[in-house]
Every structure is written in C-alpha cells, then in structure tokens.
Design a protein around this nucleic acid. Structure first.
Ligand SMILES: NC(=O)c1ccc[n+]([C@@H]2O[C@H](COP(=O)([O-])OP(=O)(O)OC[C@H]3O[C@@H](n4cnc5c(N)ncnc54)[C@H](O)[C@@H]3O)[C@@H](O)[C@H]2O)c1
Ligand SMILES: NC(=O)c1ccc[n+]([C@@H]2O[C@H](COP(=O)([O-])OP(=O)(O)OC[C@H]3O[C@@H](n4cnc5c(N)ncnc54)[C@H](O)[C@@H]3O)[C@@H](O)[C@H]2O)c1
Lengths: 229, 229
DNA sequence: AGGAGTTTGTGAACGGGAGAACAAACTGAG
DNA sequence: CTCAGTTTGTTCTCCCGTTCACAAACTCCT
C-alpha cells in the first residue's frame, strides 16, 4: 500500500515536465551531432527554448545527472532522458484511417528515428486494402485485435473522420491499446487508465486567429501595451 | 496609459480559456446540427469533455450569455464564441512546404469549414511548381511576400523539413505574418509580437510512451494505485 | 402571486507550475 | 592547499488555473 518505493529515484514527474523532456532530448541530439560533449543548463535551455531554471528543475526530477561547475555530459544526459521517457526501446504503433493524413503519417520518417515502429496500417475501405504505404500493407480494420495482440501494441493513432473516431477508439481499447493519439476533431470517451492525446489543427489555427484579432484590436485602440521583455 | 477600457466587456481572456473556446464551439455546432436549441452548462461541458464549473467560468470571460434556470441558447452562444475567436470572418492562410504533410493539410476540408482559406501553397522545389493541390497552384517560395501583402495574410503554416523551418519563419515574419503554426520539429525563434504554436507528432508519441512505461512499471511493482474516480 | 425547482455566474480555497535567488559542489590556477 | 570562478540543485515566493460551493436569477406549476 505504502510501497511507492521505486528502484532508483522518486517517481511521478510533473506532466509539464514530461511534455518538455522530448524537447530537451531533441536539443541534446542536435548538440551531440554538432560534436558538443558538454553543455550548461543555460546552453541547453536556449536550444530548447525554455528558461534555464525551469530546465534544471525539470532535470532534477530525473536525478542528479549534472556536475556543478561543469554542466551536463551530452551523451549521458541524452541516454538518461531517453530511458526515462522509454524511447531506448522501440514502440510498436498502429495507424487507423489511411486517408490524406494517414498517408502522410505512414510516410513520416521522424516516427522511426525516434523509437516508434509502424507495425500496421488499417482502414475500413476495402478499396484500400493491400495497397502498400511506406513499405507496410494496408489491412482491414478487423485485423486490429490480432495485430495488437501479436505485436503487443500499446499505442494507436486515429486518423479517421470524426464520426468514426469513437468507434475506432472503443475497438482499440477493447483490443488492449492503452494510449491513443487522436487527430480527429472529436472528444473521445475512454475508460480510466487509457491515455488520450489529441492533435487538432483547426483548434490551433483558431487560437492563432484569436490572437491576431486581439493584436489588431489593440492596435486600433492605439494603446502601446503588450511589449514587456 | 490607463486606457485599457474596451467597448463591451473585459479583455485578456486567459490562455487556457482561449484554448478551450474552439472545443466549445465545435460542441455547439454538433448540438445545433442535432437540432438542440438550448443546452445547460452540464450538457455542453460533457460534450466538450470538461468540468461544468470550468465551462461556466470560461464563458463568463466573454460576457453573460446564459439564462439562469434555463441554460444557453445554442445558436446565440455559438455566434458569440465564434465572434470572440474571430472566425465569423475568413482568415487567409499560406502553407509552406508541400511534401507529405503539406499535401494532407492542403487537402484538409476542415480548414475551410472552420473559417480558414488557403490562399497559397509554397515550396522551394521547382519540380513542384504549378502542380495543383486541392485547387490551388503550388508556387515558388519567393512569392511569399507578394502573396502575404496582396491577401493580407496573418497566419502561416510551416510544413518544411526542420532545417528549413527557421529560415521560412524569418521570411514569414519579414513578409508581415504575425502567427505561425509550425509542424517542423524545431524550436523557432521569432520577434516579440509574433505568435508561434507548434504541433509535434513525435513529442506527443513520446509523452504517450512515457505513460505506457510508467503504467507498466506500476503494474510490475504490484501496487494498485492510479484509480481514483 | 408565491414557492419549489433549476441553472447561471462568481467568490474563495486549493494545487501546481514558473521564475528568482542562493547555498552547495565542483574545477582549475597559483 | 587555498581561493576565485562557475554551474548545479533546491528552496521560496508568486501567479495562473481548477474546482467547490452558493447566492442570484430565472421558469413553471399551483
Ligand atoms: N488532412 C489533414 O491535414 C488533417 C488535419 C487535421 C485533422 N485531420 C483529421 O484527420 C482525420 C483524417 O483526415 P483525412 O484528411 O486523412 O481524411 P480522409 O477522408 O482522407 O481519410 C479518412 C480515412 O479513414 C478511413 N475510415 C473511415 N472510417 C473508418 C473506420 N471506421 N475504421 C477505419 N478506417 C476508417 C477512410 O476509409 C479513409 O481512408 C479527420 O478526422 C480529419 O478531420 C486531418
Ligand atoms: N509527414 C508527417 O506525418 C509529419 C508528421 C509530423 C511532423 N512532420 C514534419 O513536417 C515537416 C514536413 O514533413 P513531410 O513529411 O511533409 O516532409 P517532406 O520532405 O515530404 O516535405 C517537405 C517539403 O518542403 C519543401 N521545402 C524544403 N525546404 C524548403 C524551403 N526552404 N522553403 C519552402 N519549401 C521547402 C520540400 O521541397 C518538400 O516538398 C517535417 O519537418 C516533418 O518533420 C511531418
């Protein structure tokens, strides 16, 4: 009951930190490619586009991997973050809905290079089956469960029209998937223990539109605010 | 100086609220299509996947558009939110980088139906010019400035490889664009007053992977936590 | 008209994250 | 060995966002 004791260090990294770790990881990979062996929190923070105090606090949740007076060993920190996120191993992924977006996702090489392997492309449209996209057969949606079990798939991507998304999510959960990345513009209902992250292009654009409008309105009003630092 | 007085109601809606308004808008559109005339905060909150108190507080920043004891008029609220976001008018958008992802974006109909109009598709690859995607010519990247000025474009989408993204962003800002949606996995540096939102598929997957791993580790440890409500 | 029932709008408590600031810990020169 | 310089890890404070809880406001029934 009280056994929250984990092997190494404290668990439960804050969500905000988890969301930034992949950014740090990317920055470290870039630094490593440039031949940098060591970096300070200041340098890494700049590369990642965040405040250095925030970076240090984030890293402190993982453990104490830096050296005072020196900084961080790029390769070592890179490995530690990758291990914490879990991308030292490969994650099998299934993509459902191979339309415009599904094709783009299947062809995306950044998938593979970051520890994700597309093991199946599924679509309900029979006209699409056995088409080969990026070296993977498009298979009937019904094969979901078999594939999930066979490859121990934990992560599913939904790129179907919005009306089908909830159905697909239900089937995914039933098949044993516990994490879903949803591109369809719908709110998905899932049981406890299942994670959903959504990517909604229209929402992003609408947020941008709001700010454009606000900036324009502020400009018309003639006041000179907004600029702080 | 103290003139933060605006015409109608108080300005500066919290960012978290701004990010949810499009979700409410989508839920209201769905309700309207189903013939619902009126809805309570509870119903709308459920449809939007949020807490009803949060919904009410969010809406209260826009004004007082509900009726106590009754709820909200779906059409009226829909219009008010659309007006607040700024999607009662059409926003011209340019997309730069017409590869896998750019094609998908250009073909995406949800763009148009939500108040965004793709006025130009730009790519640096000459082999691509004059190809027509979704009814729009692909043009050389150099035409950016002319198009931005001609159509008063405020919003730009970057779908180029990561190495080109900063360059493209610089050119966009120079041309007069003030809001950027970035799909390339890079941190963009932009001047104050320019908004950048990023969509990074790999980061989303890595966040999901972290949680899968955490769940698995918790399972192995044998503790029965996680479930609260 | 009055009262019961319903639902909004908001004040207040609470929790988590952001940033400033500093002590602890390391390096390297003399 | 000592001391100056550097950089981490962490504490402390502040602010934003979430949630609870309730008075105010409205409807409808009798
Ligand atoms: N294209 C984009 O750039 C873009 C951007 C943002 C969001 N989206 C969203 O992503 C989703 C897909 O967009 P798209 O442009 O690729 O659409 P699309 O119509 O081109 O593709 C949808 C695919 O899903 C398949 N499908 C339909 N129902 C299915 C089901 N029940 N099971 C399995 N497959 C099914 C269809 O056969 C089709 O191949 C949509 O919800 C869209 O709103 C797309
Ligand atoms: N394909 C996906 O599903 C996906 C998913 C997430 C992120 N991304 C990211 O989106 C970006 C585009 O991905 P993609 O798969 O479409 O790549 P892609 O290589 O298919 O397309 C890139 C396009 O950009 C053009 N381009 C290159 N440099 C340019 C420049 N300076 N100015 C204008 N155009 C230029 C190229 O000619 C090409 O047409 C990449 O950064 C990728 O990491 C893609």
């Amino acid at each position: 009951m009280s056994a929250r004791t984990s092997n190494d260090h404290a668990r439960d990294i804050p969500e905000a930190t988890v969301a930034r770790l992949p950014v740090y990881l990317r920055a470290l990979i870039t630094l490593a490619e440039q031949g940098t062996m060591t970096c300070s929190s200041e340098e890494l923070a700049t590369a990642a586009g965040v405040n250095s105090a925030k970076l240090r606090k984030d890293l402190s949740y993982l453990g104490s991997y830096g050296t005072r007076g020196v900084g961080y060993d790029v390769e070592y920190l890179r490995y530690q973050i990758a291990r914490e996120i879990g991308v030292t191993q490969d994650w099998p992924v299934v993509i459902v809905g191979i339309g415009n977006l599904g094709h783009a996702l299947a062809n995306y090489s950044g998938f593979r290079s970051r520890g994700f392997r597309v093991v199946a492309l599924l679509d309900a449209d029979p006209g699409m089956h056995d088409e080969v996209v990026a070296g993977v057969d498009v298979r009937p949606f019904d094969e979901l469960e078999g594939i999930v079990v066979e490859h121990s798939v934990a992560i599913g991507v939904i790129a179907t029209p919005a009306v089908a998304a909830q159905d697909v999510a239900d089937r995914m959960v039933e098949a044993g998937i516990t994490s879903i990345l949803n591109f369809a513009p719908t709110v998905l209902g899932v049981p406890d223990g299942v994670d959903v992250r959504k990517v909604d292009l229209s929402i992003e654009l609408q947020i941008l539109a709001y700010h454009v409008q606000r900036k324009a309105a502020a400009g018309l009003a003639g006041s000179v605010e907004e600029d702080s630092a």
